[in-house]
Design a protein around this nucleic acid. Sequence first.
DNA 1: ATACGATGCATCC
DNA 2: TGGATGCCCTCGTA
Length: 555
Amino acid sequence: MAPQTRNMPFPKIVIQRDSDTEESSSEDEDDELQNDAVEESDEEQLVEDDDDDDDKDEASTSTKTKRKPITISLKKVCKVCKKSGHEAGFKGATYIDCPMKPCFLCKMPGHTTVTCPHRVATEYGVAPASHKRTHSSVEYVFERQLKSRVSTMKPKFVIPNKVHCAVIRYHSRRITCLEFHPTRNNILISGDKKGQVGVWDYGKVHERTIYGNIHGCIVNNMKFSPANDGVVYGASSDGTLSSTDLETGISSSLLNLNPNGWNGSSTWRMLYGLDLNSDKGVLVAADNYGLLYTVDMRSNNVTGSPTLIHKKRSKVTGLHCHPLQPDLLLSCGNDHFARIWDMRRLEAGSSIYALPHTRVVNSAYFSPQTGSKILTTSQDNRLRVWDSIFGNMDSPSREIVHSHDFNRHLTAFRAEWDPKDVSESLVVVGRYISENYNGVALHPIDFIDVSTGQLVAEVIDPNIRTITPVNKLHPRDDVLASGSSRSIFMWRPREKIELERGKDDEPGIVLCGNDEKKRNGKFEDDDSGDDFDKKNIMTKKSYLKSKGRGSKRKC
DNA sequence: ATACGATGCATCC
DNA sequence: TGGATGCCCTCGTA
């Protein structure tokens, strides 16, 4: 059952990379040893010693004046730990870690990223599932009602690994969230850091609209209305919960946590987590004060008083309602916990389960079909999976080491289930650290089988050099949407697109057009005009040509 | 080519 | 509890 995965000879590259990195890491070790040897002495002394050795003129002047010369050492200085004797950073397309720091990937001391076992094979980080039987009543319910729905057959994974179309400069700030339209297959909506919401018909590539006045800043989460799929809800760092008509762009605010405006950052409230519970007819949203708000979707009014669901004054990063059990709610936050709640009994401290993590939890999702599993993404560079919320929840069934570090300039990484996978095991997540692919540093989008911890596919395109922290798989089609700094990419399976288009056809790949230059180097804030035209479409010929030129092409 | 800056979280007291 | 401080693979712009 070989999955459709890599288009490039990755194993070959890995071997090549390993030999490269081993060389460089052994150099580093030598440097480290040298550094250790002199580390006992004062750093200034070290600089002076260097000068005496390297520059006789300088040394003679220093003996004349009997004063230390102010010189700049030519010796390598590490920009990470500021010590001399070694360097960290990119050497070509390979990043060399500072040997003084713990591994940037798994956070363990004693080795660096390039030699980390998790870099090559993610299954090293998998803790086996525990098979404790709790024999609780909920487990009985699970066995009887839900287990039959979980497919024991592993389907063939279809990986969208070919750029179908990509739009750059569609948003003027980084992408923060993506959602596929629940019924119209070619519609993708996107939110950005500035508060703008995009609606893109990627079937017609150029048809896109940007609504610039829905939110004042970061759109953290969006959800389509179950009652009317022309309406989308949004939770924003401006402290409002919006309801927007996608046809008109007319938006209304269902909740405003800052009715008195700006009174300093210490009092400003922001909304992050958002989900809807159609059985109960409510929206749930949560803020940076640890509070959960409930909004009735019929009356658009807040019901009840907010409930403290995470540590006081800490951010609730995500909410997810159970797909089958309307009473279950999952939340996660900056207090390092993911929690399961009974919606009928929402009180501070009354969560059914509190799932501890060692760092901030970026996201927590029930599995899409049965909701019996939980997947979390934490800033400790680990994906965690609990195999059955009706079984043993004392510890996660699996922990998978994966690079998705926190970086204040990037949207937080969130691993997402494939909603189409009946076995509830395929997950997509962007990768932070780069790999050297034929001399180009690229950040793949990883597909991981969380039942084994195996990396099923690493999706890359030589034209996409940026990190893509936001990824969403289509609920019905084999399509992946990726959000990056300012661009959105659509991916399809490689075989399919070739069947559909033929070799010499124009593939409709829209890459970095010249709209930037057209605007005289300045980006207009109200980017609602459609400035895409044929000039921005690359033909397959030019696309392949640009690929052939390799690393020179700027995207 | 290189420098700059936006700005979230951990850690310290 | 809150302010000050310091940051390791960013990325677009000047």
